[in-house]
Computed example of a mutant assay.
Amino acid sequence: MLSTSSEASARLRAICLALPEAVEKETWDDPTYRVRDRIFAMERNRDGRVSFWCKAPAGSQMILTGADPDRFFIPPYVGPKGWIGMWIDNDPDWAEVAEIVRRSYVLVAPKRLAAKFGASQPS
């Protein structure tokens, strides 16, 4: 069963805004999620499909897109910087979405804030 775009957006928003100091800011006509003005996730709603893009650890982009190209993709603009895209309008595993968002948050958040969150940034 497919999620509606508003359901998918609401679930993504809840995951992102549950992170310490996370805020939502509309940019490029879509929500972006930031920590201290650094984007860690952005929702994209184009052509009737809902996805989110986020920063990924080194090497993850090729692993995820290679393993499941129906769910993961290399987004334009930020893809060359290692970001990944994931479709969320097709009943994704929301625990997996939350984990991917948390990883991106830790990669983007200042080290002291990431440490308070109970995670350390990859070296």
Rank of each mutant, 00 (worst) to 15 (best):
Q121E: 09
I39S: 01
I39R: 03
M62V: 14
K81C: 01
I84T: 01
K25F: 11
G85A: 00
L113F: 11
M42L: 13
P57F: 05
W28I: 10
T65L: 00
I39K: 02
T4P: 08
P31N: 11
W83Q: 02
K81V: 01
R46S: 14
R11E: 11
K55H: 11
P69D: 06
T32A: 12
P57N: 15
M86H: 01
S5M: 13
E26N: 11
Y77K: 04
R46D: 15
I84H: 01
A41E: 07
V97C: 03
S104V: 08
P76A: 02
D37R: 14
V97L: 02
R13D: 15
A114H: 05
P57S: 15
R103V: 03
P75S: 07
I100S: 00
S6H: 11
S6V: 14
L2E: 11
I15R: 03
D30Q: 10
T65R: 00
P110Y: 14
A115C: 01
Y77A: 04
W28S: 05
P69M: 05
K55V: 13
E43D: 07
A41C: 15
I88D: 00
P110K: 10
S6K: 14
V35H: 06
E7V: 10
A58V: 14
R13F: 12
Y105H: 06
Y105V: 09
R102T: 09
D68Q: 06
E26V: 15
R38Y: 04
I15C: 07
F72Y: 15
P122G: 08
A41H: 09
A18I: 11
K81H: 14
E21A: 13
F73P: 01
L17R: 15
S6Q: 12
G82N: 04
L19F: 07
V35C: 06
V23H: 08
R38G: 07
S51K: 12
G82Q: 02
L2Q: 05
L17V: 09
S3E: 12
D68M: 04
P76N: 03
Q121G: 09
L12A: 06
A58Q: 14
A109N: 02
R13S: 15
A22F: 13
